[in-house]
Design a protein around this nucleic acid. Structure first.
Lengths: 337, 337
DNA sequence: TTTATTTACGAAACCGGTTGCGGGAAATAG
DNA sequence: CTATTTCCCGCAACCGGTTTCGTAAATAAA
């Protein structure tokens, strides 16, 4: 009895259920006079239609899923802002799911979407994800997918990325210009395109200058910050200690600074540091951090807009293309002097 | 045709629809043999039941809403982690909505929940929210609500908070112990209990020491960082410049550091700073930042657990009580020397 | 006046599961 | 050899909107 239904509106107004329903779709079959009566009562009773009844019949949920490795990350949380702003605008609802970088969770989450729960999915894959069959399976079931940031390059759908390769190149070039000759690249995955492309760009910049860049220059990090501090500390203890570090993702920043403090390595005198990061504390770090800042809000927004456009005209499937929103190099003290 | 339904399973196995349905509820009315047959085919075809059909009939959605002012905030993003972990565990789905500190949006969002879209709501109110009628309305429609962090103290439901008052006191006492006598408190709202309680604790600590703390010592900030920098800069230009600042929320931290840099005020020599913050960059700021760190994950987790417990036994409404998870003072350099 | 058309609304099927109830067959009891 | 119970399963109503189709009344066209 708590919630009011169309049936109750209909009975109250001596109208049929279907007439009331048609009022809410603003059908031309209903006279203006009747519409006003129904809408007036609906407003008075604060009527809100049951979304699931509608979803069931219309076979669309007006809901999308956002699947992320983690939300405690400036990039992802700002991207959510972008997504939510578009969704609200278009009248969509947003379900959020976290994989915590686990492929199994990612699979389990996506498998639930084969039943109409969502009209589409925005996903940034986990760093364990090297195959895409769980994603293509879902697409074949009719659930459109748009990747953002952490994409699967071979999956035939739209991908929103930033210019990872150019950014890696830009970062390395910036360090070279600052006089660095032995640059270490901190990675979190060998398979993720963002990692690989940023690394590739970095490598390209170095080889263009005929600077050496071997396997030793690439350091694989983990998901555990304390562990990363140790990994970086060992890097700093090497006889051929690097004179610069590129942190390929935001969450490695703290580990770099902490390892430097621990090993008494001074930034930027002994080591220059640049990080891919959206942290708004970059400017107030000690020293302030030079960053490659990704357009998180716009990437989220664009991913959502792309998906909604495809949903509106569902005969038009998502093109297998990569849309690139460029990042920005923000030079601060950590690469200065 | 893409999605398979129970009807298709039933036809394939020469069983009735209801029999198949009962298999999935593990009904005692169905023989073990039949169950195995149905489950085997379901697994083979990768059958996933339509959640909205079920929601419609059972009048429960297995979905909750999380309503937040913003997600680009360490506290909220970590709290989401806590919420999501519990939700996943209990088989619930999480819809996310952002108010951007706008009461109107908060109202619009909640008004949609009167129709069975969600079984319950977790909310942290906007700083414009001073009345709770949009919330009590929803509760009266049968949608349970649990507040977390930014609560409405007078609304008769469960609230999860941290010990804001004691934390404010602790922060002030810590500054007093460090020799400060003229403490400024940066607030973001006159009405939010978190702001008021933190301020009250601060005031209490000062009056206990017979130290003055008037209206001038409380500085109201805005939602715009550049503006906040100016506000704080003006504060630092006062003839009776404070010797300490308490930033009552995380997002004020950067403004404080930037204003100090701009005004060439040295932390902690000329000004000690303590901030309510969950930022993991606190330790690598210059100087590292003393924080009151809130148990974000556990608060989110507890809010979700409380809601789910109430949902499981729906005859037991949520008690109008406040559950307190204590914060931690982490002393670093910004209050040192 | 008759026929064609438009307008405004209702009846009923439908979306895909859920659930109360009824009944036939086999098993146990009397 | 009946009477009762138990075990399995199907029928059908139901959740709350959506949509197709039919139709009576009003209006236009012939």
């Amino acid at each position: 009895m708590p919630n009011i239904s169309m049936k109750m509106l209909a009975k109250e107004l001596q109208l049929s259920l279907s007439t009331v329903s048609k009022v809410f779709t603003d059908s031309h079959e209903i006279s203006e006079q009747t519409k006003q009566k129904v809408l007036a009562l609906a407003k008075q009773l604060n009527y809100v239609p049951n979304p699931y009844a509608s979803s069931l019949r219309k076979r669309k949920s007006k809901t999308i899923a956002v699947v992320l490795p983690d939300v405690a990350d400036s990039f992802f949380s700002v991207a959510i802002n972008g997504i939510e702003s578009v969704a609200r605008d278009k009248g969509y609802h947003v379900l959020i799911y976290l994989t915590h970088e686990l492929l199994d969770r990612e699979r389990a989450i996506l498998s639930e979407f084969q039943s109409g729960r969502v009209d589409g999915v925005l996903i940034s894959i986990s760093n364990e994800t090297t195959t895409d069959c769980h994603i293509t399976d879902m697409m074949q079931r009719g659930v459109p997918v748009v990747f953002f940031d952490r994409v699967c390059e071979e999956t035939p759908t739209t991908r929103i990325t930033t210019n990872d390769r150019e950014s890696g190149q830009l970062a390395a070039q910036h360090l070279i210009d600052a006089g660095c000759r032995n640059i270490a690249f901190l990675s979190i995955s060998e398979s993720l395109p963002i990692s690989r492309n940023r690394l590739a760009g970095c490598r390209q910049a170095l080889s263009a200058q005929r600077l050496p860049f071997g396997a030793d220059n690439v350091v694989m990090c983990t998901d555990d910050e304390a562990e990363n501090v140790q990994i970086i500390a060992r890097l700093l203890q090497r006889p051929d200690r690097p004179d610069a570090i590129i942190a390929s993702v935001e969450k490695l920043t703290a580990a770099v600074y902490l390892a430097c403090k621990q090993e008494k390595v001074s930034i930027p005198d002994q080591l220059k540091v640049i990080s891919f990061s959206n942290q708004n504390t970059a400017a107030i770090l000690n020293p302030s951090l030079t960053t490659i800042t990704q357009p998180a809000f716009n990437m989220g927004k664009m991913a959502a807009e792309t998906l909604f456009t495809s949903l509106r005209k569902s005969h038009l499937p998502l093109k297998a293309e990569t849309l690139v929103v460029p990042s920005t190099l923000i030079v601060r003290e950590s690469t200065g002097k």
